[in-house]
Design a protein around this nucleic acid. Structure first.
Length: 880
RNA sequence: GGGAUGUUAGCUCAGUUGGUUCAGAGCACUGCCUCGACAAGGCAGGGGUCACUGGUUCGAGCCCAGUACGUCCCACCA
């Protein structure tokens, strides 16, 4: 059978993924092995795969596949998030295209459309993850809005309410007067716009005095309930305790003092409009000021404004300026740049607006979450995020958990017509509660459920518990076995939104952390450093990339340059590098496969093959230890790079070339088998990163039955390398490189054989490789000599001295210059060592082993200089 | 504005407790090479005053202070 010269991922990937699924290798059920668990950060159910998901899920798959090979019971739980804001926005947009407005639909009808949408598009992203090779236990797929999970959310809400942790209160929300809905902070886009700062003077009650304030929003004057100055502002001290008349409205309001006011801004006097500005609202709370809401939901002036009723706020702004001017209140107006929030959806100017919301108290419930991260009970990787985390957790404010949406878990609060409310799971329970509280309450009394739903994070914070049915059936086999999970892989931007809250829920409901390690990935950026996003259109389609470079190529491409916590400046050439690597592995396989076909005639291993095999086996074991160490530190990029070099440089470039038989020859049986075994070990180390190609080659190398997948094979054993083996190998490498170098610089073609001598009495650890060296550098023979060969080119490799018989052909001057440069460097080095050794304070201060090391350096350097001088002399140079 | 964090080859990053065998890796770059696995390749090279300025020390990429620039999070000043 002819094996193609290049690896073709397309013909292999789907086949192997199918094979894994059919043999249920991703499946996990509790048993007596040690569990290793990851819960996926559930992607938006209607989302499509983007580069951030690719990075995130590649990392999870690498971790889970390695754990599985290490004999753990690996369980990766997949699922999706109902993402109320994003999904509802998409459904609203879809309906709009069909000419349907959300406000014309009943709640039930809207939700019907939403569920249809979810059924149609939900889970596409999970199918896409399969292309990437994700080894999730698909039987465990969950959805944050499925019945069981929703019930858990409602139960938790009720429980926290009963514990007194949830309360109802007013809050400033971002109101979209066009969309007629509150929008989240994330959906507000701040833009700098040119506006005007108006200086308006208010009369002090009962006097001829005036006080001038500055505002960009004069139309809100009608809602003013105080004027505020800094308590130590000398300009206004005499007015403390006086009252002020609001222009146009002619209302009397107090002058208050607060240190919040910046004396150097504007006039140092601030008009306070609690209903229409967040800071003013807080001032209002502090000073117990009334709020006058002068706007209607659609941004027109309300009855409460008393003037300009029913007119748009921007029209009123112009009118009121004119009127203020006419009445002599406008002192001056100056151009001013201010930050104005716009709705991402409707582009309308956002109005801060007061509304009733539900809150979760965070002060006590968040304590264990801070503590257990600070004491490393839960580890953040990289740990620099601990500071950020602490800062946030120490300044945590109550969590607003209600959202003015329909898609999500509806708040289980019920209101009667007086606005009194109870929290209950069903209407029936609510009625019972009302009745027990109020004698007049009858079965005929109308009550209605809260229209709002809960913040999506209020369901996803339960994810590590709810996916194992920890709420539905506490103490069940799954939750006992898999919880706490091991690693969580997610983006730092949701460290607070999600990670911190999962930790809080974990301690509150399980009395235990939800996971041990949190691996924080970076953001995938384009070449210009911009975040890759759909709206910018700067993100490649992940599936196109997979089609072009193969899933293995893309996976490795993403991991080549993304240490934990660092952004990934994505470049397609990284995937190309990954693809090239796959191809390199493929061709190593082709070579070995060829040997396998013909390796029967020559059963005796040569010394060079024996030594090479010994070195390779030890080296792989040694590197496995190194790779394990990198994994334990979550240095995935470095672990990949270590495997990359081990395979490409050590295995392909050195080992395979060493044992490669002469043209027309065959490889001995023993070496062939050992080589296959080593190659299999390398494939195992590669497997977490490149699952597809490793499985493909794994099955080509040997007859294996259905159950013998590489993904359930065992991770290679660690070991140490014998220093002598290492030393011999390194000396051989040095010698070969130097001979090649001399050939290059002297223009001696490889075809021309050269004679080499080894100086008797110096290190000859390369002996087992002498035959290999002859082949790699075309040396006709290596003879021993007892004398320095002054007429030949000297080489130092390890501490062995060699002579290459080519003096006539080389550029002696160049060689001497090279050696001289080398001497200069070593002399410089020696000088610095000497300085240290002659320094009394060093000799008395430094540790004995440091001094011993320096003395060793000194003698080594001196010896080396001696040898180099002899070499220069041998070449006829000046032996200085 | 508050907090965090970073600045090491053209690019992306390593550099553990300060000790010139630590200035390193991969990619990119340069030169040579179709040699029976692989040109998606082989071999050999070039390349950095470790942001800047001071300080501590016998000795600083590593410790301290300041400066410059960058990134992230939070709050966004009427």
């Amino acid at each position: 059978m002819e094996i193609p010269k290049t690896y073709d991922p397309a013909s292999s990937e789907d086949r192997w993924y199918q094979y894994w699924l059919e043999n249920r290798f991703f499946k996990s059920t509790p048993d007596n092995r040690e569990p290793y668990t990851i819960v996926i950060p559930p992607p938006n159910v209607t989302g499509v795969l983007h580069m951030g998901h690719m990075l995130n899920n590649t990392i999870q798959d690498v971790l889970i596949r390695r754990a599985r090979m290490m004999g753990k019971n690996a369980c990766w739980v997949p699922g999706t998030d109902h993402a109320s804001i994003a999904t509802e926005a998409k459904v609203v947009a879809m309906l709009k295209e069909k000419g349907i407005e959300k406000k014309d639909l009943s709640r039930e009808d809207f939700l019907k459309h939403a569920w249809e949408w979810k059924e149609k598009y939900g889970g596409i992203i999970l199918e896409q993850l399969k292309k990437l090779g994700a080894s999730c236990d698909w039987d465990r797929t969950r959805f944050t809005m499925e019945d069981d999970l929703s019930e858990a959310v409602i139960d938790v809400f009720i429980d926290l309410f009963r514990k007194g942790q949830i309360y109802r209160g007013t809050r400033m929300v971002n109101w979209d007067p066009v969309g007629l809905t509150a929008v989240s902070d994330e959906e507000v886009i701040y833009k700098e716009v040119d506006s005007t700062l108006y200086h308006v003077r208010y009369q002090v009650e009962g006097s001829d005095e005036w006080i001038t304030i500055a505002t960009t929003r004069p139309e809100t004057i009608l809602g003013d309930t105080a004027v505020c100055v800094h308590p130590s502002d000398g300009r206004y001290t005499h007015l403390h305790g006086r009252r002020i008349i609001v222009p146009i409205a002619n209302r009397s309001i107090p002058l208050i003092t607060d240190e919040y006011v910046a004396m150097d801004f504007g006039t140092g006097a601030l008009k306070v409009t609690p209903a229409h500005d967040l800071n003013d609202y807080q001032l209002g709370l502090k000073h117990k000021l009334p709020s006058i809401d002068t706007l209607t939901p659609d941004g027109k002036l309300s009855d409460a404004a008393g003037h300009y009723i029913g007119e748009d706020r921007f029209v009123v702004r112009k009118k009121i300026v004119k009127d203020l001017d006419a009445k002599g209140h406008l002192v001056k107006s100056e151009p001013y740049k201010s930050n104005v929030g716009f709705s991402e959806r409707t582009n309308a100017v956002i109005e801060p607006r007061l509304s009733m919301q539900w809150f979760l108290k965070m002060d006590t419930i968040s304590k264990p979450a801070l503590e257990n991260v600070m004491n490393d009970n839960i580890r953040l990787v990289p740990d620099k995020f601990k500071n950020t985390y602490r800062h946030w957790m120490e300044n945590v404010h109550d969590w607003c958990i209600s959202r003015q949406l329909w898609w999500g878990q509806r708040i289980p609060a019920w209101y009667d017509q007086h606005g009194d409310y109870v929290v209950a799971k069903t209407e029936q329970e609510a009625r019972t509660l009302f009745a027990s509280r109020n004698k007049d309450f009858t079965t005929d009394t109308i009550i209605h459920q809260d229209e709002d739903v809960l913040d999506t994070w209020f369901s996803s914070w339960l994810w590590p518990i709810s996916v194992f049915d920890g709420f539905k059936s506490p103490g069940n086999a799954d939750i006992k076995y898999y919880y706490p999970t091991n690693d969580l892989v997610t983006a730092p931007e949701i460290l607070f939104f999600w990670v911190a809250r999962m930790i809080i829920a974990g301690y509150e409901y399980m009395g235990e952390k939800p996971f041990t390690n949190v691996y924080l990935t970076g953001i995938v950026r384009d070449k210009l450093g911009r975040k890759m996003s759909k709206s910018l259109g700067n993100s490649p389609d992940p599936l196109d990339l997979i089609a072009k470079y193969g899933a293995d190529g893309v996976r490795t491409g993403m991991l080549f340059s993304s240490p934990a916590g660092n952004d990934l400046p994505f470049d397609e050439s990284l995937c190309e590098q990954g693809r090239n690597f796959a191809n390199k592995i493929w061709n190593a396989f082709r070579l070995i496969n060829n040997w396998q076909q013909h390796a029967t005639t020559n059963p005796i291993a040569t010394e060079r093959n024996k030594e090479s095999v010994t070195w390779l086996k030890q080296h792989i074991a040694n590197e496995t230890a190194n790779i394990n160490d990198l994994f334990s530190k979550y240095r995935l990029s470095e672990a990949l790079m270590a495997v990359y070099r081990l395979v490409w440089d050590d295995f392909c470039s050195w080992y395979l070339e060493l044992i490669k038989p002469d043209m027309g020859g065959t490889l001995d049986d023993v070496t062939c088998r050992e080589t296959v075994q080593c190659f299999e070990a390398l494939l195992k180390l590669l497997h977490p990163f490149m699952p597809f190609i490793t499985e493909e080659i794994w099955h080509h190398l040997a007859q294996r039955n259905q159950k013998e997948s590489i993904m359930v094979s065992s991770w290679p054993q660690e070991g140490v390398i014998d220093p002598k083996t290492q030393q011999a190998f390194n000396a051989m490498q040095q010698l070969v490189s130097q001979v090649r170098n001399i050939r290059k610089s002297s223009n001696i073609p490889n075809k021309e054989p050269l004679r080499m001598l080894h100086l008797w009495g110096t290190e000859y650890s390369i002996q087992p490789y002498s035959e290999a060296i002859s082949k790699l550098c075309n040396i006709s023979s290596i003879e021993e000599t007892s004398d320095k060969q002054s007429h030949m080119v000297p080489i130092l490799a390890g501490s062995g001295e060699y002579f290459l018989d080519i003096k006539e052909q080389i550029n002696t001057e160049e060689e001497i210059a090279k050696l001289t440069k080398e001497i200069e460097y070593v002399q410089g080095f020696l000088a610095s060592v000497d300085r240290k050794l002659q320094n009394e304070r060093f000799m008395t201060g430094a540790k004995p082993e440091v001094i011993a090391l320096e003395q060793k350096k000194k003698s080594d350097a001196e010896e080396k200089i001696q040898v180099l001088r002899e070499q220069i002399a041998g070449l006829g140079g000046n032996n200085r």
